[in-house]
Design a protein around this nucleic acid. Structure first.
Lengths: 218, 218
DNA sequence: GTCAAATATTTTGTATACAAGAATTGTGTT
DNA sequence: AACACAATTCTTGTATACAAAATATTTGAC
């Protein structure tokens, strides 16, 4: 018997919320799910509480657990928060980043470029993610890095859509290069503003966000 | 029988961690505490999980729950993160703050001043808190406001010490006024930097932090 | 037929029971 | 005496049982 089923269950449930198996507002029936996972209610409830902490599930006392996809307003707020926090990470990183990390950023950018040439959005997304993670780490503040990572993760389903937009990958690529340059030269405010804008631009395409939101809600 | 004991227990435990009843590294015995609170292990475990999410308790699988006070490094990171996030809140608030909120800030400052004259650090702290909460709210971003509030709460025990430092209240007061002025005039970057510095200055007094840290650890 | 109150059913929250892993103690060997 | 290993004791994680609240259903009055 393996240890700690609760977190594996939480992951699985999260996956199902992301992939749309559970729609917004759905009630997550404890007994049914427990049955489905072949466990008792105890570890399942534990998993639900964990999900409520990360915001995917709302736990209403004496009523149950409900899937809670962010609405338009909340989504905008999350993107804005992410833009701001990434900006902050960039500002701090500009003063603390190591040469090795700078080399890694260059490397990630090269791979991004290759992905664009290969017309491979998935590869691009993967390398793009690496790029951002490096910056989080190099902020030198593990708390902020953790927050940034959590937000990144939470907004993932909504970001993927954006890359499909015409020309977005190439544009994103240019922004990456400007960001690395600012970091390289220790230009704190330039790096901050560039990163903030790089994330905030996704809010510009709110309509496409709303579309993905609606499709997730049905 | 009242409803939802788990959160009242979580609050109570949090209180005891803050006030030093439970020292750093202490193991929180489920059965003993359950007994003490007159409940079963189930709601108590729920409370422990909640505390682990807010970082006060580390939950090691198959070993138990341990009190986890932040160490020096983590403490510096938390203060830095708070300074940055407050700065961000201030920047956003400078563009969005309402006249009513500005009036509230002035009011909070007046009360702060009165507290200084009355040599009442507790009253000062209370009004100071109100001042900051208003700014969080006025960022217009409930996610960021929530994060800021959570950090504020978490660092509370370490902030209180700082106010006792000679002249800190008066200095803090002047900073508050500069912040309100920047917000009033919509000077985004001035407000951001002022707020960031206002919080970051507490890191300057690291030694006093360490002292309070050590006393909490024994 | 509609609405309301009472009853039945479902579902959450909590207590207890049990199982498996960790810690501890005791014993035997060198 | 020190170490290793085994058996015991504790403790966590999970399952089941029970209680109270919320929801659904039935029944009765108008």
């Amino acid at each position: 018997m393996e240890q700690r089923r609760a977190d594996t269950i939480a992951e699985e449930l999260e996956e199902r919320i992301f992939d749309g198996t559970f729609a917004n507002g759905d009630r997550l029936d404890e007994v049914r799910l427990a049955d489905q996972f072949g466990v008792s209610r105890t570890p399942l409830r534990e998993a639900l509480q964990r999900l409520s902490r990360s915001g995917l599930v709302e736990l209403i006392p004496r009523r149950g657990a409900f899937v809670r996809q962010p609405g338009p307003v909340e989504l905008l707020e999350l993107f804005e928060a992410m833009a701001e926090i990434e900006g902050v990470c960039g500002r701090l990183a500009s003063k603390r980043i190591t040469d090795a990390a700078l080399a890694d950023l260059h490397d990630a950018n090269r791979r991004c470029m290759a992905a664009i040439e290969a017309q491979d959005p998935d590869a691009y997304y993967r390398e793009n993610e690496r790029f951002h993670m490096i910056i989080y780490q190099q902020s030198g503040n593990s708390f902020l890095a953790g927050e940034a990572q959590a937000l990144h993760r939470r907004l993932k389903p909504f970001r993927r859509h954006q890359l499909r937009l015409r020309g977005r990958m190439a544009q994103s690529m240019r922004e990456h290069e400007a960001i690395v340059e600012a970091l390289e030269q220790g230009q704190a405010d330039v790096a901050m503003q560039a990163l903030r804008a790089h994330v905030a631009i996704q809010v510009e395409h709110v309509h496409s966000l709303m579309a993905s939101l609606k499709s997730a809600a049905e």
